[in-house]
Design a protein around this nucleic acid. Structure first.
Lengths: 225, 225
DNA sequence: CTTCTATAACCAAAATTTTCATGGTGTAAA
DNA sequence: TTTACACCATGAAAATTTTGGTTATAGAAG
């Protein structure tokens, strides 16, 4: 994921950059209107984090320019101004979301992810892994040309595996992803085995190879070998 | 990976401990300044999770003491204080990151992993030693192009050897790192021999040279000669 | 009411970790 | 040099933990 951070306050942009870089994203950075404008026109970003209070220009103008071009980068406004007017002005001009300072980085991340998901699944909403195709919008899964009917949990599980292909996913992570905070992590979640088993069974009935391996003591890994 | 959780609120530290233990890590725990201070001085941790609001002392002092010693444990501050000043104070004293409560456990895990990666592997997921490659995220080990399947203890042992390459590691240090304080250090841990043997066997079956030498009366050394 | 889905409970199977017994090896002192 | 002894290596078996598969039940959806 590629992100542009437009922000002049060093303490803030450093922590944002560190954070998103640490998450494995590509981050760029602009401290003023001029360099931001140049970067926006030259490159494409999955999401632009835009601070409204820039030293040499009005941040909203960047947004106007962006929208006048054909670009479709996501825009998240971050600003200390918390009046409703500012908020509406930003959203009216086509920003995807608005976050008031100060905020938690995890909050910021959640918002950015939401924007990117919304944008990406709009056009290209199919995840592919060899002969497996998953349409996340139509919630349809095919192996080769045969469709396999998955339940919701099975589907979520598959999407999670596919977006973490070739990595070991722990059972904790699976539980947190599929069941969120409702699930007490000290509970046993043996029933994950049942969902995993059902998913494997349906995939193999559809004719897929056995991509999913268990990693003893840790979790699972979805990969080629 | 060995982690120390310094936190006095039972609900929170229990879920953190459950989570990280479930991920296959060694976790220890302190509820106050005194015991935290003792553990920090006696042992080494990959990462210390430090809550600033302790009942009997100022958490930041622990950080100061740690930095004054030669230790290089990673430190992640977790705190309810979300002012920028608090944040900067912690980072100025040498903390590696700062996370504001409340947070998601997966978020915490990501931060801890990032810290450990940065410290131990130059921010890289892959550790290399001649023909040996270890991907700590995919949990995959290869010698040349052949993959060798290691168990968790073997894997941890190898990672520990590789991050202490060309140094002699004592058996005590190995035991402490792989088993933490569940293991009474007065016990004999002869079974380390077994794990070492199994690791050596699998590596040599994969075609690796015999990099691991025992150092009589001390421990082992993983190196070229 | 019927059918499908999600969770629970249970036991069997598999993998890992630890224990144990035995013999070999390095070191230092006699 | 020899000897005693602690240390290390190894193989096999026991103990423990984790996973797989079956079946049962509750609850939602149709």
């Amino acid at each position: 994921m590629k992100i542009l951070v437009i922000e002049d306050e060093p303490a803030l942009y450093e922590s944002i950059l560190d954070y998103f870089t640490g998450e494995g994203n590509i981050c760029e950075h602009a401290v003023n209107f001029a360099s931001a404008s140049e970067k926006i026109s030259l490159y494409n970003y999955d999401c632009i984090l835009l601070d409204l209070g820039l030293p040499d220009g009005e941040g909203l103008e960047l947004l106007t320019n962006l929208k006048n071009s054909k670009k479709k980068d996501g825009v998240l406004i971050i600003s200390a101004r918390h009046s409703l007017d500012d908020r509406l002005a930003g959203l009216d001009l086509g920003a995807d979301d608005y976050l008031v300072k100060p905020f938690h980085l995890s909050e910021l991340k959640a918002r950015v992810s939401a924007i990117v998901r919304r944008k990406n699944f709009d056009g290209n909403n199919i995840i592919t892994f060899n002969d497996i195709n998953v349409d996340v919008v139509a919630m349809k899964t095919t192996v080769g040309k045969t469709e396999v009917g998955l339940t919701k949990k099975e589907f979520d599980l598959l999407v999670y595996f596919l977006s973490n292909r070739n990595k070991v996913v722990t059972k904790n992570a699976m539980a947190e992803h599929l069941w969120g905070d409702e699930m007490d992590l000290s509970d046993d979640f043996d029933f994950i085995y049942t969902h995993v088993k059902n998913l494997k069974k349906k995939l193999s009935e559809g004719g897929a190879k056995d991509y999913l391996r268990s990693v003893y003591g840790i979790g699972y890994k979805f990969s080629d070998q």
